[in-house]
Simulated assay, not measured.
Amino acid sequence: MNDEDIIRVYPVIDDEPEKIYEKLESRVFVFEELSENKLVPPGVGDMVLYEELDLLRQNVIALARKYGFGDINHNVGNSLKLKFDKELGSLIYEKMKITPSVAATLPMWQFLNLQLLPDVVFWRWGNSKEHFYSERRNYLGTQWWRYYLFSDSEESLKIYSKLNDAEIAELYERSGSRGLPEHIFEISKWFAQLSRNILIKNEREMFRSVIKRYNAELGFRNYFSLDENDKFSIFKNCFDDTAGLK
């Protein structure tokens, strides 16, 4: 097996994230060089080398600079921020070489946000604590998972590229996917398809309502016994009911 084929694990934090955040805040979120002999390994797996961490940081910094990172006179608009988020997700997904089980390790993402790339997280979100260490919104972990959930095919990635941040938030945080295969992708694909030719007054509220109703319907069924046509039929009924098309 080549080194490139080895599934990596990453360091974790060895302290309360709140305490690390306070120290970070006191130095205005300036990055401090990592000390190789102070990296805390997780319980199992092949931990990345110090040089790999340094390269990951360099790659992320190079991408961020294209969007104005480090330039105090450059104001990044919301559309560019979303574009950066998506490119960042793609970058770390490709470079980190981790599995979903490894990606479920919150202390690893806390290490990346609080110690490896705190200046980038601060540039993107300011001193928002939840984007540094919370379970649901820590920045790097969120972008990895968002990309991963749409990475199965070119079709799903094409749909992902067109979603705005509000739609992604609804899917990622409130879809109740529970890891079900194709679930998030199908919701986004079918909603786009069905809403194409009708006028929706409040699309975000409609999107949220359809997701809620669809997941409630799935709660009465065995998801894995349904083929795509079955699921689409259920989804369409939920969409039509919500839109008042029945």
Rank of each mutant, 00 (worst) to 15 (best):
K95F: 10
K246H: 11
S134R: 04
I6H: 00
G68N: 03
L39G: 11
G126C: 07
L218K: 13
D241K: 12
R124M: 14
L199S: 15
R8L: 13
R124T: 01
D3M: 12
E228D: 11
K81L: 04
L112F: 12
E52H: 00
K212I: 07
D241I: 15
G89W: 14
A64K: 05
G68T: 07
V28D: 15
V9G: 00
V40M: 05
G43K: 04
G77V: 13
K189A: 06
P17A: 08
I184W: 07
W123K: 04
K81R: 14
E182L: 06
S175Y: 13
N59H: 13
E155D: 14
V12S: 03
D71L: 14
F239W: 07
L114S: 01
L34S: 02
E22N: 03
N59F: 09
M96Q: 13
R196H: 10
V12L: 06
G176C: 01
P42W: 09
L63D: 12
K236L: 01
S177A: 14
K201I: 14
V120H: 10
N59R: 15
P107D: 11
A169I: 13
A169N: 15
H183A: 00
S153F: 09
K66D: 15
A169C: 13
F150Q: 10
L117F: 11
N113T: 10
L24G: 09
E182C: 01
N164L: 08
E16V: 09
L180E: 00
W125L: 09
Y147C: 13
I234G: 08
R65P: 02
L163K: 08
